[in-house]
Amino acid sequence: MVERTGLAILAFLGWVGEVSLFGLRAMREAFRPPFEFAEITRQLYEVGWRSAPLIATSGFSIGVVLSMHTRASLERFGAEAMIPAGLTIALIRETGPLVTALLVSGRVGAGIGAELGAMKVTEQIDALEAVAVDSFKYLAVTRIIACILALPILTTITNVCGILGGYLAETSISGMSLELYFSRAFAVVEFSDLIPSTLKTMVFGMIIGTVACYLGFTTTQGTEGVGRTSTRSVVMSSILIILANVVLVRLIFFLFPPV
């Protein structure tokens, strides 16, 4: 049992090491020409634009739900006026980035893993290598960069849609105006709340892209392996995102002490 646990830990650490080296290689290759801007743009469209509806809808729904829950809590203290500020600070600091990353992980990570896994098992990657195309740079780096660029934008969309959803929920009950709502919403928000929490999603995007690409590039066992890669991509990305979030929050608090 201990031996098996030890072997599992060693296997996990080995897998983390391989993923980390994969990611470092991707970062190194990202700054080396040739730069695949067209592919990056296409992947940005796939990862960002195609995910926007899901993200916007999710964000809006989260805003409505958060507003309702916040109202239920704060109206006990007669602090309904704090609802916009409470909802906004919750969305911007944590809910928006994390939910966005998890959603993207589920949608994009699974897609990247499945796509690259299928290319791997059907030897399309080998075919690219055969025609002198750097498959790693063309397939992995572009997707990782797309994820890194798309996540902050998607997080912003989540935040804005969430605030709008909160406004609709609030104005349907109290009739609060949009101007007053936004005034109160941003009354307690600082730059240190918005910028670090938004930029940290770039790390989440890198995790999603790196894990998905690594699993796709290492897919084996045919179509069954593709499905497994897709699942593992979502699971591993989500776990790493949550773990990384803990570290990043701690780091942000260290760099930007909360007021």
């Binding site: 067209a38 743009t41 296409r42 940005l44 469209y45 796939e46 960002g48 634009w49 195609r50 926007a52 911007i92 660029l149 798309a150 902050p152 934008i153 998607l154 912003t156 969309i157 935040n159 804005v160 941003f186 928000v189 918005l194 938004t198």
Partner: peptide, 19 residues
């Protein structure tokens, strides 16, 4: 796809700037 990607980036940047 290029237009979509550009719109995505621009909209995201505008929203972030607005915030």
């Amino acid at each position: 796809k290029v237009i979509g990607a550009g719109a995505f980036v621009v909209i995201g940047a505008l929203l972030f700037t607005a915030a």
